[in-house]
Amino acid sequence: MKLEVYLSGEIHTDWRDKIIQACQESDLDISFTSAVTHHETSDGAGDHLGAEEKQFWRDHKSAKVNAMKTKTLIERCDIAVIRFGDKYKQWNAAFDAGYCAALNKPYITLHSEDIIHPLKEVDASAQAWASSVEQVIATLKYISTK
């Protein structure tokens, strides 16, 4: 079964690369998409629309440009994997999870046990919670195999 998987959330570790590599090595028919994972590029996504004096308006403009990309990729995917890391609060990941839930789009959350409580609503709408990349890979293998 061909799957389109959207990878959302934390950008400070190589979790995306590990999932993609393992799925390729297992010859799974999965294609992956993701939001922009380079901070400076994401922060400046709206810069081509004109300079702003205040940081708020630069962030606001870039957030809207990024949202066009994110919404399009989430709407097109079959499943999303949403990673919440330890280093920063990933508000964008929580937003992506909410958007998936609103669209009735299946998603897997990926995070450590120490943040179960703050993510209880996000996890409650997820079809699966994984605490490791290996669990995500096993889930994708199960879903994509006939």
Rank of each mutant, 00 (worst) to 15 (best):
T72Q: 08
V36R: 04
N66Q: 10
A94E: 12
S34M: 08
A93R: 00
S34N: 10
L49N: 05
G44R: 05
D59T: 04
D59R: 06
R83A: 02
A35I: 11
G85L: 00
K71E: 13
R76A: 15
Y88V: 10
F95A: 10
N92I: 01
G50R: 04
E75M: 09
D43V: 06
T72A: 10
G46F: 00
H39E: 10
I74F: 02
K87S: 08
E53V: 12
T41A: 09
E40V: 12
K89A: 13
E40G: 07
E75A: 10
H39R: 13
V65D: 02
V36G: 06
I74D: 03
I74V: 14
T37R: 03
N66I: 08
D59E: 13
G50K: 03
D59S: 08
W57L: 15
I82Q: 01
Q55R: 04
K69L: 13
H48E: 09
T37V: 04
F95C: 09
F84V: 04
E75R: 06
T72V: 06
K87W: 04
D78P: 03
F84T: 03
G85Q: 01
A67I: 11
H60Y: 15
A67V: 11
K71D: 14
S34F: 01
K64P: 00
H39A: 12
S62R: 05
T70F: 09
S42R: 05
A67W: 09
D59N: 11
I82L: 03
W91H: 12
G50T: 08
V81S: 00
F84M: 03
C77A: 15
H48D: 11
A51C: 11
G44N: 10
G50E: 07
A51G: 15
V81H: 00
H60E: 15
V65E: 05
E53W: 04
G44E: 03
W91V: 12
A94L: 08
F56R: 07
V65Q: 01
T72H: 07
R83M: 01
M68Q: 12
C77N: 11
G44D: 02
G85N: 00
A63I: 06
F56W: 09
A35M: 10
E75D: 14
A51E: 15
A94D: 08
S34W: 01
V81G: 00
H38T: 13
E53L: 12
A63H: 05
W57R: 15
F84Q: 01
M68E: 14
E40I: 12
K87Q: 09
T72M: 06
E40W: 07
G44M: 04
H48A: 10
K69I: 14
D78W: 01
Y88D: 10
A51R: 13
F95P: 02
M68G: 15
D47A: 05
A63F: 06
A94W: 04
G44A: 06
A80R: 01
S42W: 05
A67L: 14
C77R: 04
D59C: 07
A45E: 00
D47T: 04
N92G: 11
L49E: 07
A45N: 00
N66F: 04
V65R: 01
R58F: 05
D43I: 07
V65N: 02
A67T: 13
I82K: 01
A45C: 00
T72Y: 04
H39I: 12
G46Q: 00
K89P: 08
S34T: 13
I79N: 02
K89G: 11
